[in-house]
């Protein structure tokens, strides 16, 4: 599925993003836990780019099952959602968001779910509609929906985005929206799950039998079937360089 459509209304959201980000950074942002290590992890909502969006319901498996929920996003002009829940277990991760509405992108869904089990990812989009068009319940990996923004460029929705890291772990994002803003790209990720692949299992997308749809504007990484060939070499400790760089104090 790859369609380009004008969508002037999406732009009107750009100015609201900053305020929305600030609003979201309140109680929901404060609930973000450390998300620093371990392969199995999940995040209900996150963003990056010129607008700092907080990460919502982020968990990482660190020896025991991790769960985090947020009943409802604080009111804001950018996105509304309920029951944002993430869980990370020893062999799996799952994230789900209910009744989400990204007003300025005309994107809505009753439920958006990303699951990652033993290095394989699946996505469920329940009653998902983007700019008037119903989205597949189980979209193929890395399906792209392009939305024309006139002179500003093109926004991209990547459905069931699957990225495999060098260590074999997989990150599946149910919906990733990329919107050009002032020459940069704002990303909004809805329901993301990361899990490691157990020994003996074969890496690859969750639906290998189906053709991959047209790629989004920013191509995800490809699977890494072989570990990096560092030959076991340990990187050395650095030798401090006598040099001055003014840093942000």
């Amino acid at each position: 599925m790859s369609k380009t459509r004008p969508l002037a209304r999406v732009i009107a959201g750009a100015a609201g993003l900053a305020c929305a980000g600030a609003m979201l950074a309140g109680p929901a942002g404060a609930a973000v836990p450390a998300h620093t290590h371990g392969h199995n992890a999940a995040t209900a909502l996150s963003g990056s780019g010129p607008i700092a969006l907080p990460t919502i319901s982020a968990v990482t498996f660190a020896g025991k099952t991790a769960d985090r929920s947020l009943l409802q996003l604080p009111a804001n002009d950018l996105v509304s959602a309920k029951a944002l829940h993430s869980t990370a277990k020893s062999a799996s991760a799952r994230s789900a968001v209910a009744d989400i509405l990204v007003k300025k992108l005309d994107l809505s869904a009753h439920a958006v779910v990303a699951k990652c089990v033993n290095g394989k990812g699946t996505v469920d989009l329940v009653s998902a509609v983007a700019h008037g068009e119903k989205l597949a319940v189980s979209p193929n990996p890395n399906s792209g929906v392009k939305v024309g923004l006139g002179t500003l460029g093109t926004a991209t929705l990547t459905l069931n985005k699957q990225v495999r890291a060098a260590d074999g772990s997989l990150t599946v994002t149910a919906i990733e929206a990329q919107v050009p803003i002032a020459g940069k790209t704002q990303t909004i990720s809805i329901s993301k799950a990361t899990c490691a692949k157990h020994e003996g299992s074969k890496p690859g997308p969750s639906e290998p039998g189906k053709p991959t749809k047209p790629a989004p504007t920013e191509e995800p990484s490809q699977p890494a079937p072989q570990p990096p060939s560092n030959n076991g070499n340990q990187a050395p400790a650095p030798k401090p360089i006598n040099h001055d760089l003014p840093v942000t104090g």
Partner: peptide, 9 residues
């Protein structure tokens, strides 16, 4: 390209 998985280990 942006880091495809900024929260991944």
């Amino acid at each position: 390209p942006a880091d495809p998985a900024p929260n991944a280990a």
